[in-house]
Design a protein around this nucleic acid. Structure first.
Lengths: 224, 224
DNA sequence: CGGAAAAGTCAAGAAACGGTCAAGGAACGG
DNA sequence: CCGTTCCTTGACCGTTTCTTGACTTTTCCG
């Protein structure tokens, strides 16, 4: 699975170059041009965020705090400021690292990798989430029931993980498609319902229970 | 407010060290040495529980289930067992994580923090607005009365949410139609009154009360 | 009181939605 | 390169919900 990186910057010149490089490094890249877009994209559960400290809309530090309220992935600031004081403030706001412009792509690439590595190591232990006896192993990307694995395809697993991680919320197909597929609503959100069907079948077959409920006209929700 | 952590373990050596570390991390710590004490302390509404799986009295898994009947905070098992099977059984009993002894205090500390954070996030994502005992769950897009759901269709829910969120204002049908259906005032704003009727019926049936009032010639308003 | 405008009620057809299936195409692994 | 798995799409059908029009009741005001 490719790591997802969210670039939060409003200079198309820069984001273009960054995206190109990171994609060639094998990452999936998303770009958000303003604070609102950044917060929207958090649902994608990026593995790392590159954050321009001077974004239109919210102040960068403020934005960083908001991000931290939602996700815990590494955040690397991109900035022209160089004063030590700024560095400290950034880290206090929940940033993990700081790269000052101009920087070389090689350097950025290296730091991104380092952070992902470290984060990965930290995560590996912990990540099991359970719900009604169903265990979702986030690190291993698999689902267990009474010790046995229920085999899901990639998309199926991603949907299960997504719903389990956002149990109390309800998502219509459009929104799920945006958040899980990540593309900008290209394509047809009807795929979602087909995947949901497959998932339900597998879960029902193995567990004999229903886990995903449909709220007519509103969307799907993981049963509490 | 400091988070409250309940340590359920009968080895004073261990609980002492744990408590010391967690207190220095800024948490309020309670210790319970046997199953009975644990259940007693649940009244304190701890934010997280560290549970030794081998406690005198009840079996750890059993105890875990009992705890789950009362509180929903994260439970981290402390144990010497290491088999994958045990891990899974623990999670099925309602545990959230599993740390095998011996563990480093740093690791424990990190996991405690991670769980508290996740729990906090989840709570915050549950946006509730209440009015006269009626609870509107914005994330789940549903309406509750005395813990029970009142089922509304999508439009109905949208109208309820809209009115509850704008309690002191009066909206005529035209305006509600524009604001809830969206811009293009295509169609006929008479639908609104039909939906209002349905909503009133459902609310009245379940709660026996009136929530929406009509201001003659002006529109509708959520009762204060 | 009486008429007009506003609001409420009801039933029925239209539209939207979700579930299911089958099949073509893309991606993957050997 | 080939076979397999997975993803996506289109079509169909039953169900729920939305909308509409006709009709009734309430409210206001001369």
């Amino acid at each position: 699975m490719a790591y997802k990186i969210l670039i939060a910057d409003d200079e198309p010149m820069l984001t273009g170059v960054l995206a190109e490089r990171l994609e060639s490094d094998g990452y999936t890249v998303y770009v958000a041009g303003d604070s609102g877009a950044v917060l929207d994209r958090l649902g994608l559960r990026p593995d790392l965020i590159l954050l321009d400290i001077n974004m239109p809309g919210m102040d960068g530090l403020e934005l960083c705090r908001s991000i931290r309220d939602t996700v815990s992935c590494p955040i690397i600031f991109l900035t022209a400021r160089i004063r030590e004081q700024d560095k400290i403030r950034g880290l206090q706001a929940g940033g993990d690292d700081y790269i000052t412009k101009p920087f070389s792509l090689a350097e950025l690439s290296a730091r991104v990798e380092a952070h992902l590595r470290r984060d990965e190591r930290q995560k590996r232990n912990t990540n099991l989430v359970s719900s009604h006896g169903l265990i979702v192993d986030l690190a291993g990307r698999r689902v267990l029931w009474e010790g046995r694995e229920i085999r899901f395809s990639r998309r199926e697993y991603e949907i299960v993980e997504f719903l389990v991680m956002n149990q109390n919320q309800i998502f219509d197909r459009e929104r799920m498609y945006e958040l899980i597929w990540g593309l900008d609503a290209e394509g047809d959100s009807r795929v979602v319902k087909e995947h949901i069907r497959k998932i339900r079948n597998k879960l029902l077959e193995v567990t004999g229970r229903e886990f995903i409920e449909t709220i007519w006209g509103m969307g799907y929700r993981w049963k509490k």
